[in-house]
Every structure is written in structure tokens, then in C-alpha cells.
Design a protein around this nucleic acid. Sequence first.
DNA 1: GTGGTCTAGACCACA
DNA 2: GTGGTCTAGACCACT
Lengths: 128, 128, 128, 128
Amino acid sequence: MAREIRFTIDNNSGIPYYKQIILQVEMAIAGDRLAAGDQLPTVRSLAVDLQINPNTVAKAYNQLEIRGIVNTQQGTGTFISDREISFSEVERERILSELCRSTLVQAGSYGFSLEEIIAQLREMGERE
Amino acid sequence: MAREIRFTIDNNSGIPYYKQIILQVEMAIAGDRLAAGDQLPTVRSLAVDLQINPNTVAKAYNQLEIRGIVNTQQGTGTFISDREISFSEVERERILSELCRSTLVQAGSYGFSLEEIIAQLREMGERE
Amino acid sequence: MAREIRFTIDNNSGIPYYKQIILQVEMAIAGDRLAAGDQLPTVRSLAVDLQINPNTVAKAYNQLEIRGIVNTQQGTGTFISDREISFSEVERERILSELCRSTLVQAGSYGFSLEEIIAQLREMGERE
Amino acid sequence: MAREIRFTIDNNSGIPYYKQIILQVEMAIAGDRLAAGDQLPTVRSLAVDLQINPNTVAKAYNQLEIRGIVNTQQGTGTFISDREISFSEVERERILSELCRSTLVQAGSYGFSLEEIIAQLREMGERE
DNA sequence: GTGGTCTAGACCACA
DNA sequence: GTGGTCTAGACCACT
């Protein structure tokens, strides 16, 4: 059960380090490479690994915790939360709806059609 | 020739306002919804329209001018430059792909399936 | 509409500074001394006021934003969120239930009876 | 004379485990549910019971001993000290008051009314 | 001017 | 050993 993922930092993407870490954890969970109970690397070890400041790692873990994605116990470590990401159906609807709204607004503002978006999503989604 | 595009600002996308404007102009050119000679709204009117700070609009126009994409004529307005600019299909693809990737990652991290997303997009898209 | 609250920091309470700030904002909202749209002091000015590090204030504001309590716009400031703290009824039930559970567990472990708790709550609640 | 109390750990209260144990012992004494000579569970058994690290229990007992509240006899166990300790009614009031204050503030920040809280507490408390 | 990110490093609290 | 808090200060991005 003790899976591990390899983190990487892209210096030039313009995306803040802490957000890159959050994204990688989220993607790992989405892709089943991490699951409830798995331990994340310690703040310090990941910081050394990525050659960044421990505070930056801590910030990422912190935000993951606030979102309920991980569970951190002082003195023990940081773990993927076991709480069935317990969104009520209503909450789930809200999140899905907001996500799609944002996608549509952006797509529209760039001149992409609904079908273009869906085709692209299908292509990317099925490639996994 | 005097085409117009409708600008929109997405508060929650995390993309800075001025970049959203730039992107929308660029994509409109790439999608042939704007062409050389077309006039952009004035800084003031667009600012009022989008309910954002005029400085922000000015910054966007500024950068568009620096990149040679638009042409500001004092006292007359801002126009799409007639200099040949090529927003290649590749660039368009890149943006579409980036948008979809982001949508998928977020969706995945919340446990939404590809089909759920597409269904929701269809529903919202067709309602308009 | 531009109300203001006075922040104070208690050095000896053992409660982290940033949590004290969060609490004060929450209490101010609960007590109607702050409402949607009101601006919080800037990070820097509050830091000077309280004689603490700006990062500490920023951390508090950050967490308030994540919880949806405030709304921060780069370059503009931090404002009380206008989003009707939009918890679905289900979510609301869950929060209330968790809060009461925690209160009861603690009360029980300290030997307080249900009636003692309720009496104390009544006394404190009505004093406001 | 050999009374026993049931310890509980609240994962979400934010109060460190060892402090929760200390508080429960103190409050049991204040509430006359423990008295001089009563034996506490062994470090190991309590740790197993609460599913926490034995070091954490040991730390709690240690601090209780330092404060003169308990008395550890090598090879025999840990007992409530016979030294007169007064957890005055005032102290008890203070803790009750603190607990209620915390509950009220949180409730208020989520928009729950006093009556909602009390109703929920009654419902949950009487179900037990 | 505003907030956001990151660093380097200290000290504390917890298990 | 773990994570949490705070500082002092730099630099960037946005309005």
C-alpha cells in the first residue's frame, strides 16, 4: 500500500512551486498512484529532493490539508486523507458546475466551440 | 470590416485580467474574428464594460502594441495592426490543449468522470 | 458601509497570531461589525499596527480566502466576501453536527453535564 | 475507592493528545470522579485503548507528576496524589466557559443561532 | 500602492 | 524524528 510518487519542479513554467506540488498530488490521487493512507514525503525530505525551501513544501501540504485532501499529524507525518472526499451531492454539483462554467467562459472568450472543447477533452481523457 | 468581439473576464480563472484581454484579442485574430484595421474598444469603455480598472485595460493594450499586434493612434483609437501576424494553428492548439488539460486535472482531483464533465458542458453550453 | 474593526494580538494566549486574526474577522462578521464588501486593512498596515510580520498577516488573510470568507484581489486589497456563505443545507447540517459532537465529547471528558453546557451557552449567548 | 474514568481522545479539537489526557485527569479530580489513591491505567493499556503512541501517554503522566497531581511508583503504577490539590470551582468554571465560548464563536461564524446549537446538542446528547 | 511567492533560518510543539 | 509558527527581507505581479 505504501506507494510513492516522484515529484518534479519546473522552474520555468511560471507556476508557483507550491502549486506544482499540489497539482502533482491531486493528479496522483486522480490517477490512482496515491490512495488513502499513503504517506507523503516529509516536508524536509521533499524540500531537499526538489532543492526548494521547506516552507514552500509546507505551504503546499497545508493547502492540501485545508482542502481535505491530506491529513497531517504533527510529529507523525502527512497522509492522503481517508475521508471519502465527502462532498454532499449538492456540493458536488456545485463544484462540477463551477468548473464547467469556467471552462466554457474561457473557451468562449478564445473562440473555441463547445464541440472543439469536447473533442479535445475526449482525446486527452482517453489517452490516459 | 468593422467587426467587434465581446470581451469577458473570468474572476475565478486565476489568470490576470490584463492577460485575459491579451489572450482574447490574440485568439480572435487567430480565429479570424478580428483582422487588420479593426478597432478595439477604447480603454475607458472596455474598462466600464468589464468593470475593471482602466489601467488594467491600458496595460493589456500596451503589451499588445509592444508585440506589434495592435496600433494605437493618438486621439483616434486602437486598431489591429496590419503587419502580418501569424497566430499559427499550433498556438491555437496549444491553448486549447492547456485549457482542457487544466479542466481534466481539476475534474479528476474531484473524482468527476470524463463523461460527467462532457454531459455538464453540453447542458450548460446548449442552454445559452 | 466602510466599517472598521480594531485588531488586537494577545502574546500570551498561546494561540498563533494568524489564528487570532482569523478569529477576530470571523467574530466581527458573526457580530455584524463587518459585512460583505468591507475592506480589511492592508497586509502591511495591519502588520505595522500589530507589530508583527507581514507574512503572518498574509497567512491569516490567505486562510480566510481559502475558506471563502474574504475575497482578495491582487493590487487592490482584501474584502469581505459577498458570496452568501453558500453552504448547502446538507453541508450546514454536517458542520453543525460536527461542532456539537466535538463540544459534547470535550464536555463529557471533562465531566460537564449536558445541562451545564446548555446553561453556560445560554448565559454567554444572551449576554451579547 | 478504586474508581475509574473513561478517557476519550478528540482528533479534531486541535488540542494535543497529551493535553487532553491531562485535562481529563484534572477535571475528573475536580468533579470528584477521581480521588487520592485512585490508580490511573498503565501507560501501555491507555495507549492501546486510545490508539495513540505510548510516548504521548507517558508525556501526559509525566507532566501530571511534575505538577504533583499523580504519583508514579516504579513497578506498581500511577496513582492520584494524596497531596491536597484544589481544582477550585473557579478553575472548573474557567474551562467550561472557555469551551462554550469556543463553541459559540465557531457557531456564530457559520451563522448558527444559539437555539440551533442547543437543539442539536440536546438531540445528540439524549440519543446516547 | 496592493497582494503573492520564495528564501534562510530560528524556535517550538508533538509523537 | 515529525510538522507548526514566526521573522526579516527580497523580488515579482497586478491595479
